[in-house]
């Protein structure tokens, strides 16, 4: 709803019909503006009404939503599947925890570092497969996700091994901890969504979408595919690390257990359930799905993968079965 003001970021939309979109935007801007404002207000005053449990869970949900946005960003702008984004989130989370451990600095100091770490990791990682089809990137991200626990456990002196590390320092002194854990991820999510909406209008985003629409046309304009791959991965890695950093702050702990291959696959499921949305509403739906499902199904452990997999298949097949017009509208409005 907040995103009504943001242009549609469906990859099939080319530069030629932005005029029509702008008109559509102007019409809906008032309605969506008021609706979005009301929802945002609701989220802001929620901790004053709801109990500590819900405040905590929603804080995690917002942080998860940011990581989900990172996955969706890569899917939308890069057209690449990733099943290793847990690793980038882990990079951000461990950056925060280790900066606290070694330098005694709080989240606000380590967030920028986490962003840089995520971006560099994304670049380093995408470089070998920059010229190849997305299959290789997907396989390499899977290897990355599987390799991460091994590395974390081996360097246990720094990473805390199985038990992981704690994130205890307050980011904002004087504010109750539970509120910090709620408002900082919410603020982060709003920031990421707003920046991405702005990014959508930039030349970079146009170039990336042009490559997705037609690689040949893009290359004749001097936009290289390898450049697109690298910049998508760097941005996506940075967003994921940012989300991971906030996740570690909200949950106040990081451990290898929270960043397995399953985490990464579930992130992709969350992204699919939100229809690869880069908006507030979509990503929060994905985040809620990811955060609440395990809680609701706590008693039925073996059913969790079935329900996640079933939800993924249902969304993918369901969207595919819709008439093309409705499908475009659904993805467009939500985007």
């Amino acid at each position: 709803m907040l995103s009504g003001a943001a242009p549609v970021s469906d990859q099939s939309v080319s530069a030629s019909n932005t005029n029509a979109l702008a008109q559509h935007d102007r019409k809906g801007r008032w309605v969506t503006g008021i609706g979005g404002g009301a929802c945002l207000l609701l989220l802001v005053i929620l901790p004053l009404v709801a109990g500590g449990y819900w405040t905590f869970t929603l804080g995690l949900c917002f942080a998860n939503a940011i990581v989900i946005i990172a996955v969706s960003f890569l899917l939308r702008y890069g057209g690449e599947v990733t099943i290793g984004h847990g690793v980038f989130a882990a990079a951000g989370a461990y950056t925060v925890a280790m900066i606290e451990k070694y330098f005694g600095l709080s989240l606000l100091a380590s967030l920028p570092v986490a962003l840089v770490v995520g971006a560099v990791l994304g670049l380093v990682f995408a470089f070998p497969s920059r010229n190849l089809s997305g299959i290789y990137l997907a396989v390499a991200t899977m290897a990355l996700a599987l390799a991460l626990p091994e590395l974390l456990l081996h360097f246990s002196a720094a990473t805390g091994g199985y038990e992981g590390l704690y994130v205890k320092l307050d980011a904002l002194p004087g504010v109750p901890k539970s509120l910090q854990r709620y408002y900082l991820p919410l603020l982060g999510l709003i920031l990421v969504v707003a920046l991405l909406a702005h990014f959508r209008r930039s030349r970079q985003a146009m170039a990336l979408l042009l490559i997705r629409t037609s690689a040949h046309a893009a290359e004749s304009f001097g936009v290289r595919r390898s450049w697109a791959r690298l910049s998508c991965m760097a941005l996506s890695g940075a967003i994921a690390a940012f989300g991971g950093a906030l996740l570690s702050f909200s949950s106040s702990t990081v451990s290898p257990n929270s960043f397995t291959l399953w985490t990464s696959i579930f992130l992709l499921v969350g992204s699919v359930v939100s229809l690869y949305s880069l908006s507030m509403v979509g990503s929060i739906i994905g985040g809620l799905f990811l955060t609440l499902m395990p809680l609701l199904l706590a008693g039925a452990g073996d059913w969790v993968p079935i329900l996640y997999g079933g939800a993924l298949l249902a969304v993918v097949l369901g969207v595919n079965a819709l008439p093309p017009k409705l499908r475009a509208r659904l993805q467009g409005v939500r985007a």
């Binding site: 073996d302 969790v304 329900l307 997999g309 079933g310 939800a311 993918v316």
Partner: peptide
């Protein structure tokens, strides 16, 4: 992506 969903279901 859908094969990942199948994988999850089969695993479950």
């Amino acid at each position: 992506i859908a094969t990942l969903g199948i994988g999850l279901v089969v695993q479950g």
